[in-house]
Amino acid sequence: MQPDKLVYMANQIATFFKSQPGDDGAERIAAHLRDFWDPSMRAHLCELAKQDDQVLDENVRKAVALLN
């Protein structure tokens, strides 16, 4: 899938959870990805997170770590 689209979608999710009270943003992003993203999309996102040139939200990076 187009990397920029996956990154954009993941960052959108992060933006929502950032607005929510509590400091469990990364956990909630990870849960959302687990619930709604097909495993191949999650795997692709994990790959992308390893690349430094992707503009991934900090919480998405943390969430990706939780996905593994």
């Binding site: 899938m1 619930d35 709604f36 993203w37 097909d38 495993p39 999309m41």
Partner: peptide
């Protein structure tokens, strides 16, 4: 595991 949505 969840599957793909239409845009996906």
């Amino acid at each position: 595991e969840p599957g793909l949505r239409i845009p996906n």
